[in-house]
Design a protein around this nucleic acid. Structure first.
Ligand SMILES: [Mn+2]
Ligand SMILES: [Mn+2]
Ligand SMILES: [Zn+2]
Ligand SMILES: [Zn+2]
Lengths: 149, 149
DNA sequence: TACTAACTGAAACCATTTTTCATTTACTAT
DNA sequence: ATAGTAAATGAAAAATGGTTTCAGTTAGTA
């Protein structure tokens, strides 16, 4: 838990450094994202953050997500058929394994896409600037739950 | 152009085979997706298909996309910050390089994710069922346009 | 040439996100 | 501590993107 709190501080001081004010609303929102190992949608985030700050407005959630996104602090997930989800995590380049059952997210550092990227660049003529890589599956807990039925 | 037409026929006869009727609306929609090497959004698709069938309704576009998607004929793109886009293409498992300038899409067959998938499965305990892999960049044409300015 | 299940599109509806704006607040400089 | 100010907030309204409903139409068939 000490690491979660450190992460919270790091994010808040980054916000402060960029000239944003540290409001209790923003605290509650950041804390709510960090306190879950599942990704959150804006609506879910509103509900969670309101437990700490009940009068929180929906708009502020969207605005805070925008800011975090612009600062590159937010990980965006693309769960098939669902609305986009968000997590707050590491700052280095990484990717995600997402549980289709419960939304739990596990990160990993990428390996081996560099060769593929070079090949594609050569073969298609595209100047490649980025990529999305995401695995979808069932987390250990959800595998158990499914087997029990 | 003969290949585009073959593709169109293949898709339409697949629809017929599945018990769907071949209506002029569906023809226009399928043709509109195929006639572009850029991905289309539902709105764009409506506009394009209406050139061939002006009274086409927005709902029919969504319904046809649903059908094509269920049959596994539709490729879904996740362009950063934009709405999901669609193309019609190959039936085998493949991925996309998408131009962030104009939306042009180029496919490729994947190589080398199997090892990574095994590693992740082992390290995270997830039972991996699928993945998203997409490259983003500038197509040759858009690179030129950008350089000229 | 019927017949009928499938299909269509207008309209109403719904969920999500954005905009607007009057009020409040976090920070800065006294 | 206090006041001043730009930034932030939230209620409400509007916009956006997508879905449902339903009465009328049509593709495929027999
Ligand atoms: Mn992450
Ligand atoms: Mn494709
Ligand atoms: Zn799970
Ligand atoms: Zn391009």
């Amino acid at each position: 838990m000490v690491s979660v709190s450190n992460q919270e501080d790091a994010i808040l001081s980054r916000l402060r450094g960029e000239g944003y004010k540290i409001t209790p609303q923003r605290r509650a929102i950041v804390r709510a994202i960090l306190s879950s190992d599942e990704y959150v949608t804006p609506e879910l985030l509103l509900i969670k953050a309101r437990q700490a700050f009940p009068s929180l407005g929906r708009v502020t959630v969207y605005r805070t997500l925008d800011i975090l996104s612009q600062l590159g602090l937010l990980c965006t997930l693309h769960p098939e058929g669902h609305h986009p989800g968000y997590t707050l995590g590491r700052l280095d380049h990484h990717h995600h394994v997402v549980c289709s059952g419960c939304g739990r997210v596990s990160d990993f550092s990428e390996h081996g896409l560099e060769e593929l990227e070079k090949r594609l660049s050569r073969e298609t003529g595209f100047k490649i600037e980025g990529h999305i890589l995401e695995f979808l599956g069932l987390c250990p807990q959800c595998q158990e739950t499914n087997n029990e039925k």
